[in-house]
Nucleic acid binder design. Structure first.
Length: 602
RNA sequence: GGCCCUAUAGUUCAAGGGAUAGAACGAAAGUUUCCUAAACUUUAAAUACAGGUUCGAGUCCUGUUGGGGCUACCA
């Protein structure tokens, strides 16, 4: 029984009888009672005053009396200003506890029948992944898990940007300076190797640009356009588009290296996709849609044959859809892929996990689709996340301050290892188990650090702070879980069994079977499904992260104050074991949504 | 210039229009006879500024200021 729903229904009946009015959802506002007052749930009466035509205090008092008289579940109530604090009886909470305890998969919501596609990651194949991609990947993954917990069917997809001038730059530099270097010969991870040549290209382009600018006394912008190496890269792109065999073969080879590298990174991050799309296969999509739009006079053709969509009436600019030479742009492709996906799958929602620098792009995308008459345009959701900044400011490749994804993960692993060994509590743990633990902790710290922040906010990544394993961190929660498991192991060894006292026994019992702190924890546990629901609706796993932390903290305080293993009253002891077991299960479920695994021991 | 996002303790983050704004790190002090001190307890410390809406505003609206982004025949 959900206390909020219970109070909602009861209050509705109370108002009907007391004031003869039907009220809507908005008028019955409940919240958890603040800790300094007696009560479990609080009804805010202000929205009801127009109906009751009485003062807040009197309204609260009247409703309180009615509720008390008409439900055995309510033990007492008190009124403070316009707030009606309601306290449930002990056996009510006992019932809530039993319900959660026996639930099949507590926190997993019923199937919704909805299918949601989540596109995330979407890397370029000219360089390795960096910190920004990590935020994208972790968000995409956890949002997918969150939606699954909400009972939706989720399709995780990746759209790899495998074509274009950027990959030609890497290819060209490799041809010019590579001496046939391969991942095998260099011992480098494929994506890093290709990235190395992308940097080499940039450096050479810069050198040529400066030279030309000095020689011809022109601006660097102009000089860059004249640089031979850039012209060569453009020529290479043209060859690629025309299917030149040699260029395509090189392109396939180097992209292959990159995919091997990405696969390793994804695996270590614990990230997967149900389907991968490649831009080389989708970049021509959308042209047909543009023709259709032209036919229906939604788009317009300019003198040079380029096609545009005029969005000035909607407060936006004009947007190019086809170049004068008939080739398409990014927007054209996105229109096409969206159309293709909604046709192929019956999608109830399509989420794009993409940085906030593309807010405008998605605004335009949705609007154009709408103009083309596709109602599903409204089902597109741009999960826009903020940039990740470093203490010294933005990451800049020019200044070499880009944090590489693989380096970062490795560093987190190393720190976890050092910290663990320093604390020296691994006992008889085998080498393999230790390795797995270090990996679990290092990644747990990283993932939690990133995901706990509201996606849309710019976040600061301080390497020093991220490797701190105390406080509001992943390892704190992992540690809490390991401790609970440790207690449960000890209890099992002693022959104790977890068992909840049944409601009937509680009703007839004169003594307390639940401590105030335990009721507090039960209340918190009971909000879990609501948290899942709200976080899912808001597309924000951060809410789940903060919830898990709160729960872990509650346990730590609880265990500090209460005896469990040494509790003499066997039924209380067994019930407490059941409670901490439930906490552990909820932690596993919550952290699983974040992609974080919890250790049995550490 | 136009459009969008953002502003909370020294720092990093919380707070569905509701009561005395909550944590963590850092600072100061304390706690180890149920598990495992990666813990627990206590203290000091914040809503950028000015208006407005409301019984009630960190939250909604307007303006000012600071920070970020977008405003390519790039992706």
């Amino acid at each position: 029984m959900n206390p909020e729903i219970f109070i909602f229904e009861k209050a509705k009946a109370a108002i009907k009888e007391l004031y003869g009015a039907d009220v809507n959802e908005k008028m019955i506002q409940t919240q958890a009672t603040r800790k300094e007052f007696v009560g479990d749930i609080t009804l805010v009466t202000f929205p009801l005053l127009k109906t009751s035509k009485k003062s807040p205090e009197i309204t609260a008092q009247e409703i309180g009396e009615w509720l008390k008289a008409n439900s055995v579940e309510i033990e007492s109530f008190n009124v403070i200003k316009g707030f009606l604090n309601i306290k449930f009886s002990q056996w009510f909470w006992q019932g809530v506890f039993i319900e959660m305890e026996t639930a099949e998969d507590f926190g997993q919501l019923a199937p919704s029948g909805k299918t949601i596609m989540v596109e995330y990651s979407s890397p370029n194949t000219n360089k390795p992944l960096h910190l920004g991609h990590i935020r994208n990947n972790l968000l995409g993954w956890s949002v997918s898990k969150l939606l699954e917990a909400n009972g939706h069917k989720v399709l995780k997809v990746n759209l790899v940007n495998d074509r274009g001038i950027h990959i030609c730059k890497s290819m060209l530099a490799w041809l010019l300076m590579g001496n046939g270097e391969t991942p095998e010969s260099s011992g480098m991870k494929g994506d890093h190797l290709v990235g190395k040549y992308y940097v080499a290209f940039s450096n050479e382009l810069k050198r040529q640009t400066k030279e030309i600018a000095a020689q011809e006394n022109i601006s660097e912008d102009e000089a860059e356009k004249k640089a031979p190496i850039l012209k060569e890269a453009q020529a290479m792109l043209l060859k690629w588009e025309n299917g030149d065999k040699e260029v395509v073969a090189l392109w396939e080879k180097m992209n292959g290296w990159v995919y091997d590298g990405f696969a390793q990174t994804y695996k270590r991050l614990g990230i997967e996709f149900d389907r991968t799309y490649y831009e080389s296969q989708t970049y021509l999509l959308g042209k047909a849609l543009v023709q259709e739009g032209l036919k229906n006079n939604i788009f317009e053709t300019h003198e040079d044959n380029s096609v545009w969509c005029d969005l000035e009436g909607d407060g936006l600019d004009k947007k190019l859809l086809l170049r004068g030479d008939g080739t398409s742009v990014y927007m054209t492709q996105d229109l096409g892929t969206a159309h293709q996906r909604f046709s192929e799958y019956k999608l109830d929602e399509h989420i794009y996990v993409v940085g906030n620098e593309q807010n405008y792009h998605f605004q335009v995308l949705k609007l154009i689709l709408k103009k083309l008459g596709f109602d599903w345009s409204d089902s597109i959701y741009h999960l826009s996340y903020g940039m990740v900044e470093l203490p010294e400011g933005k990451m800049k490749s020019r200044e070499g301050t880009v944090v590489d994804a693989d380096d970062l993960v490795e560093k987190m692993y190393q720190t976890a290892k050092e910290t663990s060994l320093e604390l020296g509590k691994l006992g008889d743990m085998g080498a393999d188990e230790q390795e797995a633990l270090f990996e679990m902790l290092g990644l747990g710290a990283l993932k939690y650090f990133i995901i706990k922040v509201d996606p849309k906010k710019t976040m600061l990544f301080d390497p020093k702070e991220s490797i701190d394993f105390n406080g509001n961190t992943g390892p704190f929660i992992q540690y809490t879980h390991a401790r609970i498991k440790s207690i449960l192991r000890r209890a099992a060894a002693e022959g104790y069994q977890k068992r909840v006292i049944d409601s009937e026994t509680v009703k007839n019992s004169t003594s307390e079977t639940l401590l105030p702190k335990e009721i507090e924890i039960i209340k918190l546990l009971n909000t879990f499904p609501t948290i899942i629901k709200e976080a899912g609706d808001a597309h924000s796993p951060a809410v789940v992260a903060n919830y898990a932390y709160e729960l872990a903290k509650e346990f730590n305080q609880y265990y500090h104050d209460v005896t469990i293993l040494k509790e003499e009253n066997a039924s209380l002891r067994d019930q407490r074991l059941a409670l901490i077991d439930l906490i552990a299960r909820v932690l596993v479920k919550a952290m699983g949504i974040l992609g974080i695994t919890l250790p049995e021991r550490m």
